[in-house]
Design a protein around this nucleic acid. Structure first.
Lengths: 190, 190
DNA sequence: GTCTATAGACGGATAGAC
DNA sequence: GTCTATCCGTCTATAGAC
């Protein structure tokens, strides 16, 4: 009755992570269960356990893939005409920020996940800072604010705006956006 | 065997909200169930349903209480010597920001909660902006960035730092803090 | 590699006793 | 107002067939 299709293991792993990511973005981390992932994917929930023994393993694998992709995207930032603007655009991505909130909430109460998130995010921030350093175009406030501080503020604002917009909070956004645009276009020499 | 203590309804309501808030901060919103809240409080889970028929009702009631308290705290901000600095300190509160992340994640996938959060947060941001307007001490970048934009950025950065620190992400924080401190102490005249 | 079946736990919500 | 008891659903994780 049910077909037992033999698939390439790596393909199945990737499909499971894809489905997990989509579920987290669309419905939140609480929607991620082995049964649900399997159902969405047309496979059995037990098969998900075969690849990722516990649900935490699944979350951790997804977080690592997400971070790896962010680091890959950083290469484009470093080589962009205006790296600061490129980083801003990258961080303002919707889906990425939605995933970020879910992982942050998850980290609030799952120790194993908290540790992985802290480690990989700290590393990613340093990589982002290096990407800015490489650039010859110095940041607007470079002398008052070290590059890593700029990266931190830029990330905080860009992601918060995306997070808020996603749930319908928009007050103040237009003002911030035009301010940032002006800053990026016309960096002042301190 | 079990005692049936008759309590003041308002007291019970407050206790339920207190417990819910603590659970969300300490273990995340997923830990909030009628059974669990009742257990922590020493009452039956069904009693929680008596006061808050659905779990969403409970979350919404807590969010409204949280926002009301934030608005009350704003009065101190408006009358502080330096309202901008006072708002920064207020927004950087740990527990508050932990609650904020949980509600944001919750809003990602529960429509009824999303609407309440969006409405009350937008209102709160305007109230915060009024609190700054009232002050004679103008903000550092007042002319380039309208007060509501300043409030938005300040809130985004303060809360993000608290959120990150809570899970062990600290890279760039020291740099941002000293930058903000310098800005607050020594606003430049644009 | 993927399935069925199952153990064992927890959840929302309600009816009705007290 | 608070309880007990219950219905019905979901979840994780594992054992074992194919």
């Amino acid at each position: 009755m049910t077909k037992r299709i033999r698939r390439d293991p790596d393909t199945t792993r990737a499909l499971i992570l894809d489905t997990t990511e989509r579920l987290m973005v669309e419905e939140g981390y609480a929607a991620v269960t082995s049964r649900r992932v399997g159902q969405e994917l047309g496979i059995n929930g037990a098969t998900v356990h075969y690849y990722y023994p516990t649900t935490d393993d699944l979350f951790i694998a997804l977080h690592q893939r997400m971070t790896a992709r962010q680091l890959a995207a950083l290469e484009d930032v470093a080589s962009a005409p205006d790296p600061v603007a490129a980083l801003w655009t990258l961080q303002a991505g919707w889906a990425q920020s939605a995933l970020g909130v879910e992982f942050l909430a998850l980290a609030n109460h799952r120790k194993s996940i908290r540790e992985v998130i802290a480690a990989t995010t700290n590393q990613a921030r340093e990589a982002q800072t290096r990407a800015l350093n490489v650039a010859s175009t110095a940041a607007a406030l470079a002398e008052e604010l070290p590059p890593i501080g700029l990266v931190t503020i830029l990330t905080a604002v860009a992601r918060t705006l995306a997070n808020e917009e996603r749930v319908g909070i928009t007050r103040g956004h237009a003002e911030v956006l035009s301010f940032v645009e002006r800053l990026l276009k016309n960096p002042r020499e301190t």
